[in-house]
Design a protein around this nucleic acid. Structure first.
Length: 229
DNA sequence: GACCAGGCACATC
DNA sequence: GATGTGCATGGT
């Protein structure tokens, strides 16, 4: 990845986001997301990781692989109970089994389980279609578009919102779409950068950016960090 | 034992 | 439209 050098102090505050990116990349290094071996595995992982620690998702994916069930056709042919048991370690297994089935039914019936067919669609069309599937919300849709299909869309999550709010980049009433707009307006059109920044934000959020207290050891603390937030 | 984790849909007001 | 709640396992 191109190693842009932007001084946090000299580049002014009109692009905090790029300063954050530089600081986090310097501190943590590349995160090599998404840890899936295929686009389909990434899509499955995107559903399974909803409100769930990734280590639990890995167990569920391992179960699917061991059962030789990690293909659209195989998952389509599993019963609800069979699928739910395989993904049990990821939590919410009953509801996630339904969500996976919904997603894969759409993928198979509308796009013949073809990743390339999905890639031919525009981001707007993809997003609209994904969001029409019960169980696929904004973050899951954007994760699939960015990490599985490698198209330009920024993924917002609770850490993104929390960090940007704490640094005064967004208003407390900013919703997902407004937060996403802020990010995309302040970043170059670079899929690899979107990929890396979201991963770095998650890494940061896990360690430093709990709801409170703000952590002075956070690599972002020097950027007008509101320690009272 | 409490809390958290890479959300989402639905019910209720 | 905003808020509350159910969904569930596994690590710390």
């Amino acid at each position: 990845m191109e190693n842009l050098r932007i001084s946090p102090m000299s580049s002014s505050t009109d692009n905090k986001l790029m300063c954050f990116y530089e600081a986090l990349l310097d501190h943590f290094g590349p995160q090599h997301w998404w840890p899936g071996q295929s686009p389909f595995e990434v899509m499955v992982g995107a559903v399974l990781t909803q409100n769930t620690n990734w280590s639990n998702v890995e167990k569920a994916i391992k179960n699917l692989k061991n059962a030789q069930a990690l293909t659209p056709e195989r998952i389509n042919n599993l019963t609800h109970e069979e699928l739910a048991q395989l993904i049990r370690p990821a939590g919410y297994f009953n509801i996630k089994a339904k969500r996976l089935k919904n997603f894969i039914r759409w993928f198979c019936s509308d796009y013949n389980a073809s990743i390339e067919s999905l890639r031919e669609l525009s981001v707007d069309r993809l997003r609209e279609e994904l969001l029409s599937i019960n169980g696929i919300g904004r973050e899951t849709a954007d994760s699939i578009i960015l990490y599985a299909l490698e198209k330009l869309t920024f993924v917002v999550d609770t850490y993104t919102y929390r960090i940007l709010l704490r640094h005064g980049c967004i208003d407390p009433d900013s919703d997902y779409e407004r937060t996403k707009e802020y990010c995309q307006a302040n970043l170059p059109d670079d899929i690899a950068l979107y990929n890396e920044l979201h991963a770095l934000i998650v890494r940061t959020g896990k360690i430093h950016c709990k709801p409170r207290p703000a952590c002075l050891e956070c690599p972002l603390a020097r950027f007008s960090h509101d320690v009272e937030a």
